[in-house]
Design a protein around this nucleic acid. Structure first.
Length: 539
RNA sequence: GCUCCCUUCGUCUAGUCAGGUCUAGGACACGGGCUUUUCAUGCCCGCGACACGGGUUCGAAUCCCGUAGGGAGUACCA
């Protein structure tokens, strides 16, 4: 049976690269009627954040990536958090130590740095020099008592290592290029390498899909597997996704973009900004000087404050930007992978049915947001109205939009009349006028100049008002007829009538179809907005 | 520096393993047009690539060698 796993370290929100890895792991399991596990790799006590695990799980669920076993739902292979499995790792580390396949070291960070500098100066790769005589258990205890850091290193063989990879074929690593690596840190926790190999064996993982950044780790993992008598899973090291700015898509990208924007605009009030970002003035200054990085939510808040659109990196960013999970999933699936059918727009089920692990490609791909928008537009039309409403509500909640207070029927109607919108944010923007009050409408300067500041507009609006007043049945067809009649009688184009109405009721040049918009607004509100617009023009 | 990986339109890619059906296909973007009461949507047309240099072969995007460029890793992070 196929068993795959996604094993994030809980350091923050799920980012788009992680989502892609998780997706393919899940697809592999689903396609083969296997199992997909979620394992939390929290062996770095410094970097872990307490809320990250829940954030990652929430992001995965939003995307529709569900797991069969994991920290929340349990399973026969638990616990699924590495920090709860220390006894297991220690058992294997002891075995390795006893068999002389691993050994103790007591180097300080400074000593290690010196060795690295020397290797660099000699233009050679740094390879840890294994002592002729391995330290004994007693010596390790003495070193620890003397306050020295005690770690355990794995002894690497002096022979070529071949990694067999689904994406890259057989990759040979030359003998002599391996350095004995740490498997247990001085704080007693295992390193990623050891914990990962042990858990993959114990959990029966058959397929490991991960980013290309792990390819260089695989020889080490294989040595561990061989030393412990473990089975070897099938590996696929997928190409990575780079950002438009170049380089790996990373969390740092947003923080950098914000700092740059703040630096470029001297009119920004730093005190107010610090308050918005929940930072002290000093912390903000440190951040701008490049000495520290605030947390992701604070960065988002500050960007909103200065009106900056940040590049989306985390799954939640895409959610808040109004993308559909179906579109995001479809889009990231096509980064470094293609369907054997050639199909591009795919539902979740299509992805499962078309998944083929032999169709990964080797080249890094650039994350093109414009193509994502195109995919989103397609999926806005594909998902059912019920599903779309569900996503719209989640979006409004994530953004804390006032529109979230509207009832389901109204929201569903907004979605319906916004057909053709590219993102949920477009729907929100387009329909925002219904949240306003007649006296809070602010006319967009360009819209006013282009549509309202023309001869005869006030007269047209007056006539529209009078004719609207005469309508009893405030429905689309009746409204449409009024506008059409006026155009015919006056021998003018639809735009000459509809546009002033649009600007009058929204303050902007963008809205859903005019009759649908008027129906949403109601007769009274429409007329009072038109009155206000007439008064504004006359003044 | 060292180790490993990669290289087809601006971008994502098909084709490369099994050389001819490839005057290289699709999608997004872009340009133009049509539809439209706005923004979108929809429809049509166009632009546009085998990194470079050598081989092998009757024939190379595809196989081999080299060059250039890009990426990843180089931690008591994962």
């Amino acid at each position: 049976m196929v068993v795959s796993r996604f094993a994030p370290s809980p350091t923050g929100y799920l980012h788009i690269g992680g989502a892609r890895t998780a997706l393919f792991c899940m697809l592999m399991a689903k396609r083969n009627n296997g199992k997909f596990l979620l394992r939390i790799e929290d062996t770095d006590q410094k970097r872990n954040t307490p809320t990250a695990t829940n954030q990652v799980m929430a992001d995965m669920k939003w995307l529709g990536i569900e797991w069969d076993e994991g920290p929340d739902c349990g399973g026969p292979n638990g616990p699924y958090k590495q920090s709860e499995r220390l006894d297991i790792y220690n058992k294997y580390i002891k075995q390795l130590l006893d068999e002389g396949k691993a050994y103790y070291c007591f180097d300080t960070p400074e000593e290690l740095q010196k060795m690295r500098d020397e290797a660099q100066a000699a233009k050679k790769a740094f390879i840890y020099k294994r002592p002729e005589v391995l330290p004994s258990e007693v010596e390790a205890e003495q070193a620890a008592a003397a306050g020295k850091p005690v770690v355990v290193r794995m002894a690497m063989p002096d022979s070529d290592i071949v990694v067999s990879d689904l994406v890259r074929g057989e990759v040979t690593f030359q003998a002599g290029s391996f350095s004995d690596f740490v498997i247990r840190k001085s704080d007693g926790f295992p390193t990623y390498h050891l914990a990962c190999v042990v858990d993959d064996e114990l959990m029966g993982i058959t397929h490991i899909f991960r980013g290309q950044e792990h390819l260089m780790n695989t020889p080490s993992h294989q040595v561990l597997q061989d030393a412990l008598g473990f089975r070897r899973p099938t590996y696929a090291h997928m190409s990575i996704t780079v950002s438009e700015g170049g380089g790996k898509l990373s969390k740092r990208e947003r923080s950098k973009a914000l700092a740059k924007a703040i630096g470029a605009d001297s009119s920004i009030d730093h005190k107010a900004l610090a308050k918005v970002g929940e930072l002290t003035d000093v912390e903000l200054a440190d951040y701008l000087a490049g000495e520290s990085t605030p947390d992701a939510p604070q960065i988002t808040k500050m960007a909103e404050f200065i009106g900056l659109h940040l590049p989306e990196i985390n799954v939640v960013d895409f959610k808040a930007a109004g993308y559909l999970p179906e579109a995001l999933v479809n889009f990231i699936a096509l980064l470094g992978w293609s369907s054997p059918t050639g199909q591009e727009i795919m539902t979740f089920d299509d992805l499962v049915n078309n998944f083929d692990e032999s169709r990964f490609n080797k080249t890094n791909s650039l994350f093109d947001r414009k193509k994502l928008i195109a995919f989103n537009t397609e999926h806005m039309k594909l998902v059912s109205p019920e599903k779309l409403l569900e996503h719209f509500k989640a979006y409004l909640a994530a953004k804390e939009s006032p529109m979230g207070e509207l009832d389901d029927a109204t929201l569903a109607e907004l979605l319906r009349i916004s057909e053709g919108a590219r993102t949920l944010e477009d729907v929100e923007n387009k329909c925002n006028f219904i949240m306003l009050k007649a006296d809070t409408i602010v006319f967009d300067e360009k819209a006013y100049k282009k549509v309202m500041a023309k001869d005869g507009v006030a007269e047209i609006l007056e006539e529209v008002r009078d004719r609207f007043n005469a309508i009893d049945d405030w429905q689309g067809p009746a409204l449409h007829k009024v506008i059409e009649d006026m155009c015919v009688e006056k021998e003018i184009g639809m735009g000459k009538v509809a546009q002033p109405i649009r600007v009058a009721i929204t303050g902007t040049m963008v809205s859903p179809a005019i009759d649908a918009s008027l129906v949403m607004l109601g007769k009274e509100e429409t007329i009072s907005r038109i009155e206000n617009a007439i008064a504004e023009i006359r003044s």
